[in-house]
Design a protein around this nucleic acid. Structure first.
Lengths: 146, 146
DNA sequence: GCATATTGTAAGCACATGCTTATCAATGAA
DNA sequence: TTCATTGATAAGCATGTGCTTACAATATGC
């Protein structure tokens, strides 16, 4: 139901502090596993859809294509991904997560989500599931707007 | 329910793009009303709790106390808030929103929320309410953790 | 009265970000 | 072949942010 006076808080006003807290909680986990925030985001994207061109990958994770290169360099250096030339179009590089990358990503994700449970545990189970479901819908539908 | 394979996406991974989209959508509205993002956040905070010291206000909105001063200067210049000295402790300033500030804030908020409806409209009503309720709970409980 | 702490303010540093431009190799169309 | 386009990369610039230091005015404890 809407608030009694018909007004509610902005979505952004509620999401912003939540986002800050989640990022702050992730930081030590990432550091412990030797990953940067962007590195983790990239691995996360690569586990989903298969391969992509680097520009598309950058746009997908919401980063600038000129700034994602350093991230890929590091991940490649650590053996977490490979990016051979695409034989079909040798300008492009086929960014692929490695087995080690997948392992690292899952380890971090498991630990991150264990942390998030502290928050989600505050909600009644039905609301918790509705929240996760709704966020997934919104995140998926966003690109289709405009 | 959790995903079929027992894993789900990170909260942060779903929230981040949502946050980006919301901020992008707010930008033109704020510009049209002559408010900066931080200015709007400050007015939003002042409409809730009554008065506060500037440092507490800064922490509350998640900004640095040394960086919020310019924001307050601008808002005061535009007549949206006042900050007289606290007679009880003349070091502190009692930051107070003015009537004009309240009007401006509500006008912007109404327009922002009308924009957010485009997103919320994608959800079934029950999920929509559960989402808003859950976010409000999480945002409120955050400070109490740790 | 004096030393210490606190509030608001200013200034600076290191760093991340968004955006732009330039370069090079490879592609594809005229 | 020639030319415009595309993908990856590097470099630069303006801006925003977190954090630190410094300082003046005021409060407070001894």
């Amino acid at each position: 139901m809407p608030d009694v006076d018909g007004r509610r808080r902005d979505l952004a006003a509620m999401i912003a502090p939540l986002q800050r807290a989640l990022v702050a909680a992730e930081q030590p986990v990432l550091r412990a596993h030797g990953l940067s925030m962007w590195g983790y985001v990239v691995l996360d994207a690569l586990e989903g859809q298969p391969v992509r061109t680097q520009a598309a990958l950058a746009e997908f994770v919401g980063a600038d294509k000129s700034r994602i290169i350093g991230v890929l360099d590091e991940l490649e250096n650590d053996g977490l991904l490979e990016r051979p030339r695409d034989p079909a179009d040798r300008r492009a590089r086929l960014v692929t997560i490695t087995g080690e990358g997948r392992r690292r990503h899952r380890a971090v994700q498991a630990e991150v989500q264990r942390g998030e449970e502290r928050l989600l545990g505050l909600l009644p189970p039905a609301d918790r599931e509705a929240l996760l479901r709704s966020l997934a819908v919104l995140a998926d539908e966003l690109p289709k707007l405009d």
